[in-house]
Amino acid sequence: MTNHAVQPDSAVLLHFDLKLADGQLADSTRRENKPALFRLGDGSLSAELEQALLGLREGDQKNFSLAPESAFGPSNPDLIQFYSRRNFIETGVPDVGTIMLFTGIKGSEMPGLISDVAEDSITVDFNHPLAGKVVWFDIEVLAIDPQLEATDEHTAG
């Protein structure tokens, strides 16, 4: 067990619980006991999240919150789309709260949340489900710069 601290270019293996302000659990690596591996400085984490990890050591636990801009971003009104009911003839009209896959312009699939079903239109929100929300992290550092085998599948993603 090493005793060095998390640096700006460290790889960090950690467990986390991600909660909303009301205490609802949004994501957890502890549920499946599959820790996440993040590399600081690779652009996958926000600067504020990296800042919260800097200086931590193996075994450290930390609770902190991040504003929407530092976590999953603000809710973008341009990502809320309106569709005609005719677009859902094949699938049937979905219920509010349903997440469906939609084919994007370049053929890529993106999940959309059905946020409203009206008489003649269906509203789909393509924002990240946690966009616009303050999120709370409860993290535990398991290892810093762990020596993982190439076959290890416990990476975040």
Score class of each variant (00 low, 15 high):
D9I: 07
D9S: 14
A11E: 10
A11T: 15
V12F: 08
H15R: 08
H15E: 12
F16G: 00
D17K: 09
L18S: 04
L18Q: 06
K19H: 00
K19N: 05
L20S: 11
A21S: 13
Q24H: 14
L25W: 03
L25Q: 14
L25P: 00
A26C: 05
A26G: 06
D27V: 00
D27Q: 12
S28T: 08
S28G: 09
R31M: 04
E32W: 06
N33G: 02
K34G: 01
P35A: 11
P35R: 07
A36M: 10
A36V: 06
R39T: 15
D42K: 13
G43C: 13
G43K: 13
S44L: 14
A47I: 14
A47P: 02
Q51S: 14
L54G: 06
L54C: 02
L54T: 01
G55K: 06
G55M: 08
L56R: 04
R57E: 08
R57G: 01
R57H: 13
G59Q: 11
G59T: 08
G59Y: 01
D60S: 11
D60L: 07
Q61K: 15
K62Q: 14
F64D: 05
S65N: 08
S65R: 13
P68D: 05
S70G: 02
P74H: 15
P74V: 13
S75Y: 04
S75P: 00
N76V: 09
N76G: 03
L79P: 03
I80G: 00
I80P: 00
F82T: 12
F82H: 13
Y83V: 05
S84C: 08
R85V: 13
R85A: 14
R86N: 14
N87A: 15
N87R: 14
N87G: 01
N87C: 08
F88V: 07
G92N: 04
V93N: 04
V93Y: 07
P94S: 13
P94L: 10
P94I: 11
P94V: 06
G97I: 04
T103D: 07
T103F: 00
T103P: 00
I105S: 12
E109G: 12
E109I: 04
E109L: 15
P111T: 10
P111G: 12
I114H: 10
I114V: 15
I114S: 02
S115A: 07
D116Q: 15
V117R: 00
E119I: 00
E119Q: 12
D120Y: 08
D120H: 14
I122F: 01
D125G: 07
N127I: 02
H128E: 11
L130Q: 07
A131D: 08
A131P: 07
V135Q: 05
F137R: 04
D138M: 02
D138F: 05
I139Y: 04
E140G: 02
V141A: 06
L142F: 03
I144Q: 01
